[in-house]
Design a protein around this nucleic acid. Sequence first.
DNA 1: CTGAAATAGGACTCCTAAGGTCGTATATCG
DNA 2: CGATATACGACCTTAGGAGTCCTATTTCAG
Lengths: 160, 160
Amino acid sequence: MLKLTKKADYGLIALKHLSLKAPEGSASAKEIAEAYRIPLPLLAKVLQKLARNGFLRSEHGTNGGYKLARDPRQINALEVIRSIDGPIILTSCFTDHGEPCDQTDHCNVREPLRKIHEGIQDLLASITIADMSEDNPDSRLYMIPTHSPARPTQGFRGEL
Amino acid sequence: MLKLTKKADYGLIALKHLSLKAPEGSASAKEIAEAYRIPLPLLAKVLQKLARNGFLRSEHGTNGGYKLARDPRQINALEVIRSIDGPIILTSCFTDHGEPCDQTDHCNVREPLRKIHEGIQDLLASITIADMSEDNPDSRLYMIPTHSPARPTQGFRGEL
DNA sequence: CTGAAATAGGACTCCTAAGGTCGTATATCG
DNA sequence: CGATATACGACCTTAGGAGTCCTATTTCAG
């Protein structure tokens, strides 16, 4: 249904939270979980995964927690989502690496879907954790495509 | 996991198939199902939904089938997907209509995610059934965003 | 040195929705 | 009348998302 998982959501929230404390600021899983009303054990898993994948550095023990391992301006949403949820698969025809599906020969939408797939990825890759500020004045994160903007059917927005 | 449902996939395939026969050409569900190895009863459901929503016109009986009810140049992917799967929900924070989630006050990624959400929708809305040709020379269906293209971390594509 | 607080991580449950099937009704043509 | 269509509701199965539980292990504070 083309939606993000909550885990990915939580991951982005946590990274954004940590970026506000950066550099060198840290926060525990508990602190973040309480701040955003996220179930602690679930968030912990997400943070552990982010740590394993090099986005965070963890510190055990009392006063431990997580801190960013990289510059928030160089962590983009695509990486984070992939790190947590695995590769993005728009349709089973192809993965991130463009592997063919079993019936490539008789499929008439493969190529256009691949373009959409890449478009979404480019979009996600263009947004960094640092960009994720409510008050970011540079709010045009994307460009409206330049050609053939099919006019939406009238009356559709109301029911869907 | 940010993927399209198979139903939406099937719907796009079917519409594309019919657009190749347009105008006035028709095809039965059986014909389409066999051409693309899609389970017939499932495809039938999808086609019925598309007919109910005004994309197709159906004809009963022998030599019956479906034909496009609208110009394929004015049917975009977003409409089709919404018609089949319901509204696109990137995250539960908001639907197509921007309804607020229950804990809007303490969420630091709402706004950027909304932008991504709209970006994806604009992308989908910009592609019509008619655009969906393998050999379409106008292959730049989207524009790379103009600012802060965070460089992807090296070595990531290999494992994800 | 003991206990509290933190991360690490495997195993498990619950539940929704995607994906698909079945059966039946209805319309149309030969 | 029967073959071939669409129409549609009810049902089944399964994968994966969402979350819990339990048990290490590390670190600091008293």
